[in-house]
């Protein structure tokens, strides 16, 4: 048997390496970001303390507002697009409504492995004048000069990005729902069938309610994930043209690393974190409530 002191030493030797790396790279810098967010700093020279000025400026910054609006659009496409569609696809596979379900699953899940920046470049090619979509439209309409102009449209510039997000992440929810559907005993559906329930009723009145907690938790995770969005949009449009496709994280990147506005950029970072923390707190509170019922 080993004595308590050497046991403690062993314990720390297991935990501390990971904790030191984690704290040095993730926790410690966060304190600096918070500090910087109350300053005005160009990356060199004196640091000027400005109090809440950066946060006040966010409230009236039209570019930040576009970014926030687009982040909310990502939330909407996640919660009302990816998740319901993922659930529907999963249910169809689970009930073996199609032959070759395995093959469909394998093909649909494929994009999960491709890096977002490359997905962005791929879809830029699909939408380009010599890409798939404009070519098909030209052949269908006979208009030989057709090119996509939606990216310059003030109200709809963000729509193609939402479509790509749907393409990229729906299958993730499909796989999560498939795993959860397999936990529902067949006898539940069998019994409903015996009672004469139709497929639509089974899906709406049995499957959806059973999976409700899973839907709910994934929604909140999708919401908190939505506020982080960067790679895809940065690579597809960089937030342009004229900030139409800006999201908070891209705006933060440009503010800090392109325009060297470290204080203001840090304030945007902190706001992003606050949105994420709020979403996760909501999950926690709601999960507790669900468990109590």
């Amino acid at each position: 048997m080993v004595n308590a002191r050497s046991k403690r030493r062993s314990y720390l030797s297991f935990v501390l390496p990971a904790f030191v790396i984690y704290a040095a790279i993730m926790v410690f810098p966060l304190v600096f970001t918070l500090g910087l967010s109350f300053t005005k700093w160009k990356g060199y020279g004196p640091i000027e303390f400005v109090g809440f000025q950066n946060y006040a400026r966010l409230l009236s910054d039209p570019v930040f507002h576009i970014g926030l609006r687009n982040n909310v659009l990502i939330v909407l496409i996640s919660v009302f697009g990816q998740i319901p569609l993922g659930l529907l696809l999963a249910y169809m596979l689970h009930r073996r409504m199609v032959k070759g379900a395995k093959l469909f699953e394998i093909l649909i899940f494929l994009p999960i492995t491709i890096s977002s920046v490359i997905v962005a470049q791929l879809w830029n090619r699909v939408f380009s004048p010599v890409g798939i979509l404009p070519t098909i439209v030209r052949q269908l309409t006979g208009n030989h000069d057709y090119i996509m102009t939606i990216f310059e449209n003030k109200d709809f510039a963000f729509v193609p990005i939402m479509f790509v997000l749907l393409w990229q992440h729906t299958s993730l929810y499909m796989v999560i729902f498939l795993a959860n559907l397999q936990r529902i005993p067949d006898s539940v559906i069998e019994a409903a069938k015996m009672e004469g329930a139709s497929e639509g009723i089974i899906f709406r009145k049995i499957i959806v309610p059973i999976l409700a907690p899973v839907v709910f938790i994934n929604s909140i995770l999708a919401i908190s994930g939505s506020f982080k969005s960067f790679d895809l949009i940065y690579s597809m449009t960089g937030g342009g043209p004229a900030h139409l496709t800006e999201v908070m994280a891209v705006y933060m990147y440009n503010t800090t690393f392109v325009f060297q506005n470290y204080g203001y950029g840090s304030a945007i970072s902190i706001v992003i974190i606050l949105f994420i923390v709020a979403a996760i707190m909501l999950t926690k509170a709601a999960t507790n409530k669900l468990n109590m019922v």
Partner: peptide, 13 residues
């Protein structure tokens, strides 16, 4: 750490 994003620490880092 699950809540922290790259963007929150990238400047000081």
């Amino acid at each position: 750490g699950l809540m922290l994003t790259v963007h929150a620490v990238i400047v000081p880092l």
